[in-house]
Simulated scan of single mutants.
Amino acid sequence: MRLYGDPVLRRKAKPLAATDLLTVPGFQPQTVREVADAMLETMFEQRGVGLAAPQIGLPVRLFVAVEYADDEEEHEGQDKPLRSRVLREYVMLNPVIRPLNKKKDRSYQEGCLSIPGIYEEGVARARQVRIDYTDLEGQPRSLEAEDYLARVFQHELDHLDGVLFLDRLPDDVTSDHRAELLKIQQAAKTYLTELTAWEKRTH
C-alpha cells in the first residue's frame, strides 16, 4: 500500500487496455485481471471500499470498489470476512465520470487507505453520477450511482488524477493533521527505500 507522501500518488495515471501486462513494483508482470484480483484482496485486508492502482504503485487508470450488504461500522473490530457481505464488485478501467445532479453533498465522512487513521467530513461530491468505463473483457460499460457509492467512485477517480481527499478540504484541516501526516510520510519514505534496495538486489 502506497502512503501519503509517495510521489506515485501525485502522478496522473495513464490509460490501459484489458490485454495489457502490468508490473507492480516488487512483483513479476501480471495480467490486468490478476492485478485487479490482488487489489480487491488488498482492499478487503485493509477493510476498505475502494482501491485505485496508484495506491499499489501502478500509475494506470484502474480502480476497484465494492458495495457491502450493510454498514462497515456495524462490524468494527469483528473478524467476519468482508467478502461474505459483498453485494457487488466493480473493476473499472479508464473510468470517466459525469455528474447527473448539480447538487453537491458534504455530509459523508471520507477516509483513505493511503492516509490511514485520518477521517474528515466536508468533501463536496456530486450526489448522482454516470460512470463510463471498460471492463476486464475490454467491453465498454456504463452505470449510474448515487449517494455513498457515487462518492466512492469519485474518490477513486481522484486518485487516478493525483488528487487526495484532503486536497478538497480547507488548508487548516490538513494543518490539524500535520503530526499524523508527517508520520505517514516517513513510513512512505521508509517503504520506498526498502523497495529500491530490493529491486537492486533482484536485478
Rank of each mutant, 00 (worst) to 15 (best):
P25D: 13
E146S: 13
V96G: 09
Y148M: 15
T42C: 11
V35L: 11
P140I: 02
M92R: 00
L21V: 07
R33I: 11
D20P: 07
D161I: 12
A36C: 12
W198D: 12
V163H: 07
A179G: 05
E144S: 12
L181H: 05
K103A: 06
E137C: 04
G48C: 05
Q46R: 09
E34Q: 05
D135R: 11
D171L: 10
R151M: 08
L22R: 05
L182P: 03
G57K: 02
V123L: 05
V35M: 07
D161A: 13
R141A: 06
A38K: 14
T23W: 09
V96Q: 14
P54C: 03
T193R: 13
E144N: 06
L169E: 02
Q28R: 12
V129I: 15
Q139A: 14
S114I: 06
D176N: 15
L160I: 04
V64R: 00
R11P: 10
R47W: 01
P81W: 12
D135K: 10
R151C: 00
D132Y: 05
A187C: 13
V64W: 10
E144I: 06
H177C: 07
A150F: 04
V8T: 06
V163R: 09
P95N: 08
D158Y: 01
P170H: 02
V86E: 02
P81Y: 13
K189D: 13
I97R: 13
Y133H: 01
A69W: 11
V123W: 04
Y68N: 00
R130V: 12
Q109A: 08
